[in-house]
Design a protein around this nucleic acid. Sequence first.
DNA 1: AAATGTCACAACCGCCGCCAA
DNA 2: GTTGGCGGCGGTTGTGACATT
Length: 357
Amino acid sequence: MGRAPCCDKNGLKKGPWTQEEDQKLMDYIQKHGHGSWRTLPKNAGLARCGKSCRLRWTNYLRPDIKRGRFSFEEEETIIQLHSILGNKWSAIAARLPGRTDNEIKNYWNTHIRKRLLRMGIDPVTHSPRLDLLDLSSILGSSIYNPTQLHLSRLLGIDPLVNSELLRLASNILSSQCNNLNLLPQSLQENDQFSNPQIQNQFSSLVQTQQLQNPIQEIPSCTTANTFVSDPQLMQANVDQISSNPIDFPGQNVQSDLYQDNGVPCSLDPNFMPNLNYGYFNSDQSIVDPSPESSDFQLNHNQNFNFASVLSTPASSPMTLNSSSTHINSSTEDERDSYCSNMLKFEIPDLLDMSDFM
DNA sequence: AAATGTCACAACCGCCGCCAA
DNA sequence: GTTGGCGGCGGTTGTGACATT
């Protein structure tokens, strides 16, 4: 048996809300609360579906809604949370006071998602797009042969990706999953890295990574996507976070549920996605994404890390700096630059990236 | 100035989970 | 255990504003 519609649609108005309707809805809720959404329209004298009233209230009329542009911190938070939660917009919204799931979803689809795609990042996995890697490897032969047709440029991906760079990035990522010691050897065997300079620099990179992170093995990680590769763990993380959208560390929760770093104990820290897009130093202090740009001055004293994101309760005072620079106040190029810096793969200085460009 | 394309966002639709009867 | 009501969620659409040709 089919389910009855949420309301009798006959004679009910659809489409944009008028000021009069808004006022009626606000007046009614302020006096009586919303109560049952199903009966609200009738009681409030509105020819609307209860669901429509609820959406209008939660997405637009609610007094605690923070309107206006998203700050850098908010965008960063969205990206980080999305890498864990996926399209759980309500869960993400719970971590961003004053923002609605609809607003975040729209912002993601219209801004962040496109920007990540433009940068060659898969907005679903938050890792370099493997399709681009494959495509660029096919096209790669033309990169060192200027006489060949630059299909990649024609396809518009040339400014985004360099095949070897992306493949390097992919290997770096996958190397964190597998045995780093085998990488130089596999590099030698991989004739795609035909450039000896790249091989040398990559070997140095691997050694440096080993020195800096002597024990970096991540169990059960079998793909290049180090962010969230295990569906079960992904789900576990989602469940953990979703089930407690408000009660995060620092609130009235059992302290033994969380570690000192604010990460729930049930979340294996090894499986916390590498959310440091090179945007934080190892000591978790913020790396200014664009020191040259005054528009990108961030408060370096803010210890804004992933744990702090998770520990920012929706009901608590804002830890996000609401007076901070807004994303939309800068140019698209600047925002790309900002995101580009979020995509750095912690490649040390000794690796001269200009050689890949 | 008009036509066309693109973007941003409010709103809708349909499905799902929870809960009470 | 089943059914139906309800609220909530995520995906999609419609439309006005703005940009480009």
